[in-house]
Design a binder for these strands. Structure first.
Length: 503
RNA sequence: UCCCCGAUAGCUCAACUGGUAGAGCGAGCGGCUGUUAACCGCUAGGUUGUAGGUUCGAGUCCUACUCGGGGAGCCA
């Protein structure tokens, strides 16, 4: 005999015809004189509950009618399938208990500004969009662990307090460790290399801190990163691992989140293309592409498209503005006003893109071998491809000290970035590590780093050094890519931004 | 750090070139038996971010500041 006194909405599909009790929060409600529709959420989904006058006490009917959004309650009723309902099932209510009534819940079903929502993140989490992203994040992290665990990797928890820089000293957060200056980790990589010499294949997964002064849609000061590190591997091996890994997690996220991705408006067909092999370019190839005619042509075409788009939006706005002047019902006016707000936002975005296009074209044409690929350069390369792109063999001087120099072409290092397609940009950075003791000592000196801090790291090259390497994948960036979310701050529950921590 | 934009009701936005500050949502009350951001009627809700200036008159113009958004550099 199944227990129907505490049922989750996600399980309703197996309960058709049965009487069950749900516990949750009032997501939204509509009412007519003698019938009410309450949308309840319980953390597993949404369910529309139908309340007909006469089937419950009048007092309760009135109380429910007045109940504010996000009040907590339990409802009891019979489950039935109905296409008109969210989720395909609804509850014909026979009884309800209000646990805690709410009035004036600050977040309404209408639109809100960014600042307001971040200030109310503790409540905004309850909204459909944030809930879907949270669920997707959960399955992504689960898939990441599953991939490494099933492929012979050992999890190593690397420390958060560290005494040295691995990724450039300007981006360190300082901490006071009982009077000793210390900082928060920028990567677990160096410790992970030590572990790889013990376990062979390892990974770490945790928060990472970078004090980058970057106020963009792609940056957080605290973000989660997974980093595998493998002994006895070369660059080709790393690329193969990375493309298998990314394909696996994308596939897994899709399998587990179809309806959530659809709710978010994601085009599943583009994600289904994410299968090995990915495109492979060297840095030199990328430089040639950027400075070549093809790119200029590509950008020129893009500019044309953007201008067309702008014109279309503008004429649509003019049309609506004209319409607004005519005689209309109030609700029609409101609808037009809402559409106008949306169109104006689109227009502003298109304008920014139009403004940036020539700048990007100029930057691309002026690209000189030796510079690091800029954000706009990455965007261009990734826009020109429908699958992720590896860019390998960067000039060593633009990259971190620990990257292994190519033994034939000594100016470049054996590293790679993985750019997500359609303009999203970098989600992975990785490299083969310098395994030669003398070369590494030289690099540490060249970068002006304090050699004392790296003694233990150099030991790894003294005692059985082997070719090895690894990479880091940014979790929030991956989520933003998969969910087509514009800003990375929506991809973590409580984001830490460059100049502000809300809650 | 630099460049651009913004700040008007609890929220999202209006207010043509300076001339009595308006809608919707939300809240309260009433109506409606299948709603999908439901709908319809009524009510309440404001020192227009702060400080100063120009003017007969400032939400609107000028200066400074504060806060926010977008972009650039750098990166996962």
């Amino acid at each position: 005999m199944p227990n129907n006194r505490n049922v989750y909405i996600a399980d309703l599909k197996d309960k058709t015809g049965q009487e069950v009790t749900l516990s949750g929060w009032l997501y939204n409600s509509r009412s007519s004189g003698k019938i009410q529709f309450l949308i309840i959420r319980d953390g597993t989904g949404l369910c529309q509950c139908i309340i007909e006058k006469g089937k419950i006490p009048d007092k309760l009917f009135d109380d429910l009618k007045r109940l504010g959004r996000e009040s907590s309650l339990t409802v009891t009723g019979t489950v039935r399938a109905d296409e008109r309902s969210v989720g395909g099932h609804e509850l014909a209510v026979t009884d309800a208990k209000i646990i805690s009534p709410t009035d004036s819940y600050p977040i309404t079903p209408k639109s809100h500004g960014v600042d307001f929502l971040l200030k109310h993140r503790h409540l905004h989490m309850r909204s459909q969009r944030q809930w879907c992203i949270g669920k997707i994040r959960h399955t992504l992290i689960d898939a990441i662990r599953m991939f490494f665990n099933d492929n012979g990797f050992t999890l190593i928890d690397t420390p958060i307090f560290t005494s040295f820089a691995a990724e450039g000293e300007q981006t360190l957060f300082e901490a006071d460790y009982f009077g000793t200056p210390m900082h928060l980790t920028q990567t677990g990589q160096l410790h992970l290399e030590a572990a790889a010499m013990s376990f062979g294949k390892v990974y770490c997964f945790g928060p990472t801190f970078r004090a980058e002064k970057s106020k963009t849609r792609r940056h957080l000061t605290e973000f989660w990163m997974v980093e595998p590190e493998i002994a006895f591997i070369d660059l080709d091996g790393l690329l193969e691992l990375a493309e298998n890994f990314v394909s696996f997690i994308v596939d897994r996220v899709m399998q587990k989140n179809r309806s959530r991705l659809q709710t978010l408006g994601v085009d599943l067909a583009t994600l289904e293309k994410i299968k090995p092999p990915f495109y492979r370019l060297t840095y030199t190839d990328a430089a040639d592409i950027l400075t070549g005619d093809r790119t200029q042509k590509f950008l020129a075409e893009q500019l044309e498209q953007l201008k067309n788009q702008k014109q279309q939006t503008e004429s649509k706005i003019a049309e609506l503005e004209e319409k607004q002047k005519g005689r209309l019902k109030q609700w029609q006016k409101d609808k037009i006003a809402a559409e106008l707000i949306e169109l104006r936002t689109d227009l502003a975005e298109t304008d920014t893109k139009i403004e940036n296009n020539p700048k990007h074209a100029k930057l691309a044409s002026e690209f000189r071998w030796g510079k690091d690929l800029g954000g706009s350069d990455e965007t261009i390369i990734s826009q020109m491809h429908d699958k992720p792109v590896f860019v390998t063999h960067y000039p060593g001087e633009a990259k971190a000290f620990y990257m292994k120099a190519d033994r034939k072409e000594t100016k470049v290092v054996l590293n790679f970035d993985l750019l997500a397609p359609a303009g999203f940009g970098e989600i992975i950075g990785g490299s083969v590590r310098e395994d030669d003791y003398d070369l590494l000592v030289k690099r540490i000196a060249e970068y002006g780093l304090n050699a004392e801090n790296y003694e233990w790291y150099l030991d790894l090259r003294k005692y059985g050094s082997v070719p090895h390497g690894g990479f880091g994948l940014g979790v929030e960036r991956t989520i933003a890519w998969l969910t087509a979310e514009k800003h990375i701050r929506q991809c973590i529950a409580f984001p830490r931004l460059m100049d502000k921590i809300y809650i």
